[in-house]
């Protein structure tokens, strides 16, 4: 999906837990997530910290979208 949307002309930030799969299949901007059932959150945290964590990941995704890349890149925090 990441490749197909990018092919249509959009930069795509792919937020996913299993970054190796994303790398194998060919996403270009890869953002590591928390866990498969909750990529952008952690239910063990209280709501405020859960949201803070989510914001950090989204900020990293936006950082990736504003960064030019020439090859597949994993944006570690």
């Amino acid at each position: 999906m990441a490749k197909e949307i990018e092919r249509a002309g959009f930069p795509v930030a792919h937020i996913c837990t299993v970054t190796p799969i994303s790398k194998t299949v060919g996403a270009n901007r890869i953002i590591p997530a928390i866990a498969i059932p909750h990529p952008l959150g952690d239910p063990s945290l209280d709501p405020a910290n859960d949201k803070k964590l989510r914001r950090e990941i989204v900020e990293n995704a936006l950082h990736a979208l504003t960064t030019d890349v020439t090859e597949q890149t994993i944006f570690e925090e």
Binding site: M1, A2, I5, F10, P11, V12, A13, H14, I15, C16, T17, V18, S22, A27, A33, I36, P37, P39, L40, V58, A61, L65
Partner: peptide, 8 residues
């Protein structure tokens, strides 16, 4: 302008 794609 840009897409955030999330996967589980």
């Amino acid at each position: 302008s840009a897409v955030i794609l999330t996967s589980t």
